[in-house]
Amino acid sequence: MKAIRFERFGPPDVLALVDVDEPHAGPGQVRIAVRAVGINGLDGKIRSGRMAGVFDVALPSGTGSDASGVVDQVGDGVSGVQVGDAVFGVGTGVLAEHAVLDAWAVKPDSLAFEEAAGYPVPVETAFRVLDLVGLEPGRTLLVSGASGGVGTAVVQIARQRGITVVSTASPANQDYLRGLGALPTTYGDGLVDRVRALAPDGVDAALDVSGSGVIAECIALTGDPSRVVSIADFTAPQLGAQVSFAPADVPAALRAAAALHVDGVLRMPVGSTFLLADAAAAQAHNDAGHAAGRTVVVVAGEAGAP
């Protein structure tokens, strides 16, 4: 089968489309014929070698973790899913024609494969960090770097819980965030004053999604370092803030996301699509940042088909 691999750490152009043996579903796993793959910021960090101290990556390596597709193998001990079911979930090296998933949920008929591929890591992260800060309805949350996948999910889930969301993004993405129900503002000097103008009653918690060096400003706004959580700035604990990195209950998060989609609460807009052979360009686009919506690689099937 065709798959994307890299033999050394480096920029996106280390990625190559090569022929490899098909993987097979082991116990507790399913294999899918991949229809689409969501590109995450972590993919580029692993490929570049920046996460070498966190992840043990054996080269040559595949890339990508979030995929949607049709089940074509079911491993021992798996129940509730069968060959032919459309699913979305998380695996390793999923930028390929076939991929093994370790966690998944059945894809609603109303959810296109492209959009579904953009759900797994962002929605799991969003549920996890929102549960970590534990805000009640009527409270106010600041999300720094909200126009990407995680931010998009956080804003919608928080709004569904009755939380006011103030968000930061580039000038080009202000309308995008406003459309999700957030109160948007821009990055840069004067951030604290701009946020206070949007949230005169104060900010109860802050989430740093982009790792753009705003932990001190988030602490100034919340007044309490323990109310600040980052998923991207590993220096945050030096200022007393939290870092959340390890996934929690991934299958439960995926099922919850599917239910919110069916209820009309959650959408993960696809900002850009690429073909499998252009996976390097897809990761380069995502690495550049400031994109609204998800970057998705279409592997097979008709783009946009449910």
Rank of each mutant, 00 (worst) to 15 (best):
Q283K: 09
Q156R: 12
A33E: 15
A248H: 15
L130C: 10
H24V: 15
A16D: 11
V165S: 08
R178I: 08
A281K: 07
A220N: 13
G93E: 11
D233I: 15
E115Y: 08
A220M: 10
L183R: 14
S144P: 09
A117W: 01
G44D: 03
R159T: 13
L221F: 10
L15Y: 02
I4W: 00
R50S: 12
D72S: 09
P251A: 11
G138K: 15
D21K: 12
V155C: 10
A300Y: 02
H98S: 12
L221G: 05
G118S: 09
F88Q: 01
V209A: 03
G213P: 05
V166D: 02
E302W: 07
K45L: 15
P120Q: 10
V262S: 04
S61G: 13
L135N: 01
E97Y: 05
G213L: 13
I219E: 04
G202P: 06
G149M: 06
N173R: 09
D109K: 06
T222W: 02
I219N: 01
F88R: 03
A291G: 12
S79H: 14
G41F: 06
A86W: 02
V192D: 07
G190V: 02
G145A: 10
G293S: 11
A256V: 05
V203H: 10
A303E: 12
V166N: 07
S170G: 15
A126T: 07
Y176V: 12
L101Y: 04
V228K: 00
R139A: 13
V270T: 09
L17V: 10
A182S: 14
S230P: 07
D189F: 03
S210T: 11
I163W: 00
L141G: 01
T185D: 05
G179Q: 12
V20L: 05
R294A: 13
L266F: 12
G118I: 05
R35E: 11
I231Q: 00
G271W: 00
V81P: 01
A236I: 12
P12Q: 12
G223S: 14
S167I: 03
L207A: 04
G118E: 01
R31F: 09
P237N: 12
V166R: 03
S144M: 07
G213I: 07
V74W: 04
N40W: 07
S68H: 08
E7C: 05
D233R: 02
T235V: 15
L141I: 13
G134P: 09
A206G: 04
V54R: 02
R5P: 09
S244T: 14
A172Y: 05
V133N: 03
I215T: 03
S61N: 14
R161W: 03
A58P: 01
A220K: 10
A158G: 06
G75K: 05
R139K: 14
V37L: 07
A284H: 02
L191Y: 03
E136K: 14
L42P: 01
G211Y: 04
S244E: 14
P237E: 12
P27L: 10
R294V: 06
I32T: 11
A169Q: 04
S170C: 08
L59V: 11
A281Y: 04
A182D: 00
